[in-house]
């Protein structure tokens, strides 16, 4: 058993986007704060800190999670994926990201990281989703800019592309 006393910092080691990474956290530190301010991975955003808005959605050991409802100490030894891990190379966009760009599926971009993480995870699990399935997934996210239609459109396009249909138009960063 390990008991981590309050008010002390404890080492947290994880695989972040495939690379080993570590930092210190008090037991009460949220994973959002740990990723952003301890590790410096500020791509994961904080919108509500009560699990509703979805901006902080990340993947922990292959499962979607609200980083704001997760303690940093809970991910010790886990593999965490964040938006910083989505692009195939620093100067290129992944297929889903490119679909977002093509379809104007973002405006301010604040909620986008969480939405990308949900979709990235989902499209790997459900290669040929129906629009209703994608809608159901996206109800876990709030976006105030786009009215959602372009997000849905980008998601369906990315799904079609992943399923082997040709992209409408190639677009890289």
């Amino acid at each position: 058993m390990s008991r981590l006393p309050a008010d002390q910092h404890h080492a947290v080691r994880l695989m972040l986007n495939g690379k080993p990474c570590s930092g210190d956290a008090e037991p009460r530190m949220l994973l959002t704060d740990f990723l952003r301010h301890e590790i410096g991975a500020t791509g994961t955003h904080v919108g509500c800190e009560h699990g509703v808005c979805g901006a902080c959605t990340v993947e922990i050991d292959g499962k979607l999670a609200r980083a704001c409802l997760t303690l940093a100490v809970q991910v010790d030894g886990c593999a965490v994926r964040t938006v910083e891990g989505l692009a195939p190379a620093p100067d290129r966009l992944g297929l889903l990201q490119a679909a977002f760009k093509r379809n104007h599926a973002l405006q301010c971009g604040f909620c986008t990281a969480g939405i990308l993480m949900s979709l990235d995870h989902f499209l790997r699990e459900v290669p040929k989703p129906s629009e209703q399935e994608v809608r159901d997934l996206l109800t876990g996210h709030l976006c105030r800019c786009t009215g959602y239609t372009p997000i849905l459109r980008a998601a369906m396009e990315a799904a079609a592309e992943l399923a082997g249909e040709p992209a409408k138009e190639k677009s890289d960063a």
């Binding site: 058993m1 981590l4 309050a6 009460r28 800190e49 100490v73």
Partner: peptide, 17 residues
């Protein structure tokens, strides 16, 4: 909106819980 301090126990056996 940050939690108050607490100890965290990562249980490895049911008895510890």
């Amino acid at each position: 909106m940050k939690p108050a301090a607490f100890d965290y126990v990562r249980a490895e056996h049911l008895d510890e819980v």
